[in-house]
Simulated scan of single mutants.
Amino acid sequence: MGDLSLRDRLTGIVGPTLARRVIALLDEEALTPCRDTDCVRIRSHSRLGFHLWRHPVGAPIVRGLLGRKCFNCGQYAWRRIHRAGPAS
């Protein structure tokens, strides 16, 4: 099944009509720039690519060289991904 394209796999699962609609939706989302306030990325990217959501710091799993690390993502607790997003 790995040899089939995404279109062929979707067509086999949901049928040709729904497969066309899903692929059209994915194409539209790939072209739409991300404007999510909880996204950490600074540079422009699509809604489907390179998206990182902010989240609260989880319980630290290890003490790293530069401080505590988040249980959820493994990054240091002081990184931008853990800060509150801009107020809307």
Rank of each mutant, 00 (worst) to 15 (best):
A77G: 03
H51N: 08
V14Q: 03
L66P: 03
C73L: 03
R7A: 12
R21D: 12
S46Q: 03
G67V: 08
R47L: 13
L65F: 12
L4F: 13
C34I: 02
L31C: 11
I13W: 05
T37C: 09
R20H: 10
G49D: 13
R47A: 03
C70A: 02
V40Y: 00
P16V: 12
L52D: 04
A19Q: 00
N72C: 05
P60T: 08
Q75E: 14
R68W: 08
P16R: 13
G85F: 03
W53S: 13
H82T: 03
L4C: 06
P86I: 00
A30N: 13
V57K: 02
A24V: 06
A84L: 10
A87G: 06
V40A: 04
D38K: 09
R68Q: 09
P86F: 05
Y76S: 02
L25R: 15
P86G: 07
A24P: 04
D8Y: 04
G64C: 02
L6Q: 12
A24W: 03
I61V: 09
R41Q: 11
R83D: 15
H55C: 08
D3H: 15
R54H: 10
A87L: 11
L26S: 07
G85P: 11
R21E: 15
R43I: 08
C70Q: 00
R21Y: 07
I13T: 02
L48D: 00
S44W: 08
I23T: 00
G64N: 02
A30K: 05
P16F: 04
L31R: 15
T11F: 05
V14K: 04
T32S: 07
R43Y: 11
H82F: 07
L48M: 09
G49V: 11
L18Q: 13
G12C: 06
I23N: 00
N72F: 15
L25C: 13
E28Q: 15
N72G: 05
R7F: 09
D27G: 12
L6G: 09
P60M: 04
R68C: 03
G12P: 01
L4P: 06
R63P: 08
H55W: 05
L25W: 11
L31H: 11
G67L: 07
R83K: 15
W53N: 08
S5G: 13
L66C: 12
H82L: 04
T32F: 05
G85T: 03
L25F: 14
I61N: 10
P86T: 04
G58N: 00
R68F: 05
I81Q: 00
L48F: 02
C39G: 02
P33D: 06
E29W: 07
P33H: 05
L26I: 12
D3P: 07
L18A: 14
W78H: 15
R7E: 12
E28M: 09
E29P: 01
H45P: 01
P33T: 06
D3V: 08
A24L: 05
C70S: 02
G12T: 01
P33L: 05
F71P: 01
A19M: 01
R68Y: 07
P16Y: 07
G58I: 02
